[in-house]
Design a protein around this nucleic acid. Sequence first.
DNA 1: GTCTATAGCCAGATAGAC
DNA 2: GTCTATCTGGCTATAGAC
Lengths: 187, 187
Amino acid sequence: MTNSGGAGKRERLIAAACQMVHQQGVEKTTLADIAQAAGVPLGNVYYYFKTKNDIVRAIVETYLDEARAMLAAIEGGHAAPRDRLKAMFGSLSRDSERIARYGCPTGSLCGELDKRADGPGAAAELMRVPVDWAARQFTAMGRPDAEDLALEVIARYEGTALLANTFRDPDLMARETARVDRWLDAM
Amino acid sequence: MTNSGGAGKRERLIAAACQMVHQQGVEKTTLADIAQAAGVPLGNVYYYFKTKNDIVRAIVETYLDEARAMLAAIEGGHAAPRDRLKAMFGSLSRDSERIARYGCPTGSLCGELDKRADGPGAAAELMRVPVDWAARQFTAMGRPDAEDLALEVIARYEGTALLANTFRDPDLMARETARVDRWLDAM
DNA sequence: GTCTATAGCCAGATAGAC
DNA sequence: GTCTATCTGGCTATAGAC
């Protein structure tokens, strides 16, 4: 209704920002990069976002929505907590090429936000989503140490993504996924 | 002998660069930051390093030396591979305040180098050191899957550091260290 | 709402006196 | 070898016509 002339221009800008920032990082991505990738003239970006930081915030919001949607889809597709955790971790292997090339979008973004002024708040909010979700699954499995298990499984996820990216080796993800599957089966 | 006037100025610059880059990241650290932290005038920096990238390379070299020295010290202090691995992982807890505030120096540097042009080579070389070392310890324990175990333990190390930094919670490191200790004892 | 042109700033890098 | 002053380029952000 409002934004009649926009025709999803704001959405295109956010999508372009997510892609460019994933590939190049926050600091090395310029507004000109984002504008060009979205097919929008540079000056027009400021009609939709007052500052570059506003775009970063929009990226975090998008990742929050995507993470919640993905975890909800997993819950819908798997009834057993153990299977849900496997499905969550397995998303590493599905995207292995992209992660080996550019890292985990959430993990590398959090790493960058930690060095920024606004940093900790938004990054922590973003990382809380999968950790809390995993903790609920372990609780449903009757584990009293659910919170520690959740931190361990997400740490393995992010750590594996970092190593796969550093070594440019997509295969690492499949190998660690197999190990996590066996670990979950044994508990 | 050469560099008689230097009086360790180059070393001061590298030390300052390591500290500033750990705290602020590569992209947000300016040569002026480094020069000021080292007590050296900006223009003089270029007598020791032709470009900013040369300074980054010097940081990687320093981290390589430090990592090798630290692992050698652990080998000297512990005969059993299991104890060596525990000591390596335990270094997370010892530095927990700094890591919760600024992240793992190696991990966050690798994350940033992955987005740079020269990136993958230097970062991979740096991360190879602890992975190969851990693999040797697991091999000495008679484990045929030593390489996968090494990747897992370093992934947990780096992943835990990222989470502790994101949540600004030093306590995570001690909790994960305790879990890793039990895991190593059970194998 | 859209887009061009440009202001203003700051970082990396250099020139050249000492 | 050391240091001041400055150049150059690129990036965020704004002004203002349409």
